[in-house]
Amino acid sequence: MKAGIITFLGSNCDDDALYALGDVLGADASRVLYNENELPKLDLVVLPGGFSYGDYLRCGAIARFSPIMSAVKEFADAGGLVLGICNGFQILTEAGLLPGALTRNDCVEFRCKWVNIRVENNQTPFTGELSPGDVLRVPIAHTEGNYFDRPENIARLNEENRVVFRYCDEKGQVTPEANPNGSIENIAGILNEGGNVLGMMPHPERACEELLGSADGMRILRSIALYAVNRADA
């Protein structure tokens, strides 16, 4: 799998995504700078976490105007796989590649902590190696992760099975106590209509080695790689 990680000015999880995909997973991962106009030939584009443009104005609101974003949109429109993590998810909603918005956490503060997320849909390019109901232990680290959209849009996400992850407790129960930021229906990650763009607030790239507390994030990255390899073979 060839993966490109976009470095916006202010991205700070770009190196982590490069490391997790390249060194830990063994994929062919490289960096693409914000000011480039074209993407190399890729199977996966990652919009990493961080504070693009300091999150000034509004999270992701400035990054969506970076030169590279036109190429990312074209890539997504052509069915390419795009994974937005944390700030990357925020950029995708600002760019219109995903619906809804990420508003301030209900606790008002930044939260860095381990959470559990439940796999809702494994019929996606990002979760093929997982089963519905699987509980993954992954960290969050954000101030604006409170997913919001109009009720009819949330209903549509549910109908189309586009909520991929929800915050849950250790046993997989989706409870208010397990919701770290106030997201509607504990939403932690969603797909676009085409099913090829995933945005998620938790950081799978931080959960790729037991040494650091969990390797569950690697199950997501491995799913993507296997999908990409199979797609290339097909």
Partner: peptide
Amino acid sequence: VWQQYDHQVQDNTVFGPEAADAALVRLK
């Protein structure tokens, strides 16, 4: 205090806040 701090970015934190008597970051 420390849940307001990102103590994991850079993917090196073996022992973060209150995990041990000292913090520990691994070298890649």
